Simulated scan of single mutants.
Amino acid sequence: MIRATEADLPAIQAMLSARAPHAMFPQSNLRNQGLGGGHPHGMTVWIDTLHTVSAMLGLNNCGMVMPVWDDMPRGAADVLKRFPLKGFAGPTPMVRPLTTALALDTAPATLDADEPQFLLHLPTTRWSDDAGTLAPVSDHRETAIGWRTAYQTELHMTDDGPESAVAAVDRWCAADSHRLLIVEGQPVAMTGFNARLPDIVQVGGVYTPPDLRRRGFARQAVALHLAEARAQGVREATLFAATDAAVACYQSLGFDRIGDFALVLFDGEVTP
Rank of each mutant, 00 (worst) to 15 (best):
Y207G: 02
L104F: 11
L197G: 14
V222R: 04
P84K: 14
P108M: 03
Q152F: 13
N32F: 06
W147S: 10
V270D: 04
T208R: 03
T191M: 08
T49V: 11
L30E: 03
G34D: 02
D211A: 13
A109N: 09
A150D: 14
P91I: 02
G233L: 09
Q232V: 00
G38R: 01
D48V: 08
A55C: 04
T52N: 13
A227Y: 01
A195V: 07
R19V: 05
A237R: 03
L120N: 10
V270P: 08
Q232E: 15
Q13R: 13
T124P: 00
T125K: 06
D130L: 13
H39S: 02
G75Q: 07
P210M: 08
A109M: 06
A246K: 10
I145T: 08
L226Q: 04
A4Y: 09
S128G: 14
E236Q: 15
R31H: 13
T92E: 15
F83C: 12
Q232A: 15
G87A: 06
N194W: 09
L224K: 15
P108A: 04
H140G: 00
V45L: 13
I47A: 11
G254W: 04
T191L: 07
T243G: 11
R179S: 12
P21W: 05
A241T: 07
P209N: 06
P123G: 05
C62I: 07
Y207A: 07
L226I: 05
V68T: 11
T44R: 14
S28L: 00
A4G: 10
A4V: 08
D267R: 07
T238H: 01
E142F: 05
M15T: 01
A242W: 01
T5L: 10
L102R: 09
D70C: 06
T5Y: 03
V65F: 00
D160Q: 11
G216H: 09
D105H: 04
E269A: 11
A223H: 05
G259H: 10
D260C: 04
A109K: 03
T243I: 08
P210L: 03
D170Q: 13
A18S: 15
L111Y: 13
I12F: 11
E115H: 11
E6S: 13
F266N: 06
H41G: 00
R179T: 05
L85M: 10
V183T: 11
R3F: 03
V169G: 09
R148I: 01
A107Y: 07
D256L: 12
M15C: 10
D160K: 00
W147K: 04
E6H: 14
Y151V: 01
A237I: 03
E269I: 02
E163R: 05
T5A: 15
C62H: 01
I145V: 14
P26N: 05
G75C: 05
A101N: 10
S17Y: 04
R257D: 03
C249T: 15
E228W: 15
A20L: 15
L224T: 00
A76E: 05
G87D: 08
A131Q: 13
R96G: 03
D8R: 13
E142H: 09
A103K: 15
